[in-house]
Computed example of a mutant assay.
Amino acid sequence: MLDKSHKANIRERGLLTKTPFLHSLTGNALARMLDSAHVYSMPARANVFREGEPALAFYCVLAGYVRLYRVSRDGRQADIRICAPGDVFAECLIFGGEKYRFSAQAAENVSLARFDMQDVRELAEQDTQVAKAIMTALSGHLLSTMDCVVNDRLHTAPQRVADYLINRCPTATGTASIRLPFQKNLLAGMLGLAPEALSRAFSSLRRTGVTVRGRVIQIGDVEALKQI
């Protein structure tokens, strides 16, 4: 649960201004959004909110990672998204939905900016800049969701892992080294895989020179990885 908060300070306002959600805002629209932000710090595994609770606010990640997930009737969990610094989540409920449709949990120590749903709804009705920023964020998430669905249906587990690594490679050829920004169980959820399926995928990629040591991934041949 969220506890103590404070108004966004100069550094935090600067971070918010650079996020995809707010970077297009100027003048009074930007000032009013920044003034409405309350910043919280939360420890790892703390719940931001739970599925079914009243949807009173949406959030922007300033530091750390937040896991969005749903729980089935038999207790199984399915990750929906891993939110990184700069990402907003639950803004899809600004114009619809009285309750959260998923749960949000701090994957590690996080800093979040909280925006009141009703306040931002009123701002959007008064200022087209704010309304456009919301629509842009929603459009981006819809396109991302479509990509995830296609990825799940067309790509094998090794291909999903390979694509993730290739997109983060610092070089297009030769060898490369990547450090995961979070635990491998979060990567599994992000890619729509069970942890054991992720382990098997990494094992199958050894033939391309991929080795795993903790969070560090060594790639022996980037071009060979692209052929998976």
Rank of each mutant, 00 (worst) to 15 (best):
I217V: 15
S203N: 15
L143I: 09
F102T: 10
L142P: 01
M190R: 14
L56R: 13
R101Q: 12
G214P: 10
I166S: 10
A137K: 00
R206D: 06
G97F: 02
R50T: 12
F49Y: 15
K226A: 14
K99R: 15
Q126M: 11
K226I: 02
A57Y: 03
L34A: 01
P20T: 01
T156F: 02
F182P: 11
A78F: 14
M190Q: 15
K226E: 10
V150P: 00
P181L: 09
A57R: 07
M146I: 14
V39L: 04
A46V: 03
Q227F: 00
G52F: 08
G75L: 06
N167S: 14
L30K: 14
T145G: 14
V210S: 03
I134M: 03
S5N: 10
H38A: 12
A104S: 07
R81K: 14
R213W: 02
S5P: 02
Y69D: 11
T208H: 13
I94N: 05
D87Y: 08
Y100C: 04
A113V: 10
P158W: 01
V48D: 09
P170Q: 05
E125Q: 12
M135L: 15
N185Q: 12
E12W: 02
L138G: 01
L187Q: 10
A201Y: 06
C148I: 07
F21E: 02
A37L: 01
L225R: 05
E91H: 12
S5V: 09
Y100R: 12
C169E: 06
H141N: 11
P195D: 07
L2P: 08
I178N: 05
V150L: 13
D163P: 00
L154Y: 08
M1K: 07
V61K: 03
F21Y: 04
A188V: 13
E223Y: 01
D163K: 08
A197P: 01
L180M: 15
L191H: 05
L2F: 11
E53P: 04
P170Y: 03
D119L: 10
I178C: 06
V120I: 15
M1Y: 05
G214N: 06
L56G: 04
R200W: 05
R215P: 04
A37M: 00
H38R: 14
I166H: 06
L193M: 12
T175A: 15
H6N: 08
L34Q: 03
V216N: 13
E108N: 12
A8L: 07
R206H: 11
R160Y: 06
I219M: 08
V212A: 10
N151S: 15
A113I: 08
M146T: 13
Y40M: 01
L30I: 07
L154K: 09
M146P: 00
T128L: 06
D152C: 01
S24Q: 11
M135V: 10
Q159A: 10
M117L: 11
S103Y: 01
M33L: 14
G27S: 06
L205Q: 10
Y59E: 09
P158I: 01
A224N: 04
R32H: 08
G97P: 09
T156Q: 03
P170W: 03
D3P: 00
Y65W: 11
G64W: 09
G220K: 05
P85L: 10
Y40G: 02
Q126W: 00
R73M: 08
K18H: 07
L198P: 05
Q218W: 00
K7Q: 13
A176R: 03
